[in-house]
Design a binder for these strands. Sequence first.
RNA 1: GCUCCCGUCGUCUAGGGGUCUAGGACACCGCCCUUUCAAGGCGGCGGCACGGGUUCGAAUCCCGUCGGGAGCGCCA
Length: 474
Amino acid sequence: MSVRVRFAPSPTGYLHVGGARTALFNYLFAKKTKGAFILRIEDTDRERSTVEAEKAIMEDLRWLGLHWDEGPYRQTERVDLYRKHAEELVQRGLAYPCYCTEAEIEEMREEMLSLGIAPKYSGRCRNLSESDRKKLESEGRVAAIRFKVPEGGEISFKDIVRGELKFRFSDIGDFVIMRSDGLPTYNFAVVIDDHHMNITHVIRADEHIANTPKQLLIYQAFGWDPPQFAHVSMILGPDRSKLSKRHGAVAISQYRKDGYLPSAMDNYLLLLGWSSPDDREIFSMDEMIELFSLDRLSRNPAIFDINKLRWMNGYYMRKLPLDEVYEQAIPFFLEKGFPMNADWLKKVVAVYREHTSTLREMVEEALPLISFSLPFDSSIEEELKFDHVTQVLKAFLEVFTPYKYKEVSASLAWELLKGVVDRVGLKRGKVLFPLRIALTGRKTGPELYHFIELIGVKEALERAQRVLDYLERR
RNA sequence: GCUCCCGUCGUCUAGGGGUCUAGGACACCGCCCUUUCAAGGCGGCGGCACGGGUUCGAAUCCCGUCGGGAGCGCCA
């Protein structure tokens, strides 16, 4: 039987890094085994599910390059299926209607907790007679349906990443499978769907381990073969608790907005819980697919390290084909008001990607190319207070003026700059640094000759002249 | 409280009885390069949670302790 896996987010928020990693693992496994990757939207929580969230999640999955082969299936479009199966269980005596209210259950829960026993459903409605039911219904109570968990015994399964896992029935209370609003609960819908969708492997986060015995019970009740399970450890924040908003950005869309590349994101996520047989860490999507295997999944939780992501993103910015980085950078250039001249912008990318870590940073660094205004910030002005600065500017004007209307390459610009240095007769740094300040208004940036090539000699001369006038007027 | 999961450099990890003086990557520190910041090159710092076993031999196997995490919902 060919592999079929699914990613099943609930559309109650944006795709976060943990979900993205789960999706990635499923995707890689599907591609690796030439199986199918299915997208299923678990939207049975009507309160919190939104179509916006669903769209956002799909957009982020596409951005990451995790394209699904089937779906999206929505659980709210399949309620008849769940209802039918729930009724079957009731008829067979494996499930029963429960009339307890939320308040009553909460009360029981508190009480058990205070008594120091595991808070699970008491089974109060388990053995209701037909007349009891009628009476409760006449009170206007609407029933939920609970699964009847066997009294004694245990259930075990073999997890691909964790090995044999065992649970006692006595620790599991009768759990709701159909809510009083007629929609299935997670534990029920997953099983019905995974079975009907012929899912062969369930790759999901660690936090679902405790749900697995309940799901197994349902498989058993229907006489279905369960899929194989692979429970991946969770992604934690720096304080070792489950990664959440208070740890900083967790939404994939936020990383996109911050100027991260999807390829870097995928690669980094892969390393959070998976390692290659050799020491390699950088993989293209094709290589990931080629190398991925479930048996190299890590058992321990991983802390999300933005630092390494940043490094990796910078690495990808430098290694990826120029055109690809340029494509990704376009929105950032637009946002900052850069002129949309593709040839020129590609040169800008070629220069500025060398020393920045994100697209946003790269564009921010390149801002002096399109904006220049005096006076500079006071900390920058400090650098212009030396006597030799006017001398430097004059020498620059003299050397570059003959090239005012010419195309000057970076290498020619470099030759000319060396001429300026000679003319001033000071050390390179003494000459080039103030010149950098004057032309860019910043202390840092790419090599000056690159900068001059990018803005053109005419613009450079104008800037130098303006700074010179400004200094002399002072 | 109960159940379950997990403990190798600060972080991600390799390792699965001898080849471990524990390997790689990020971060950090230093040096080189240099026109600034980076990038790059070279080098350095740094870890098997603890205690008992088993064994000729344990990071690796077993037990316990401690620590961290998750679950215990008519959320998923």
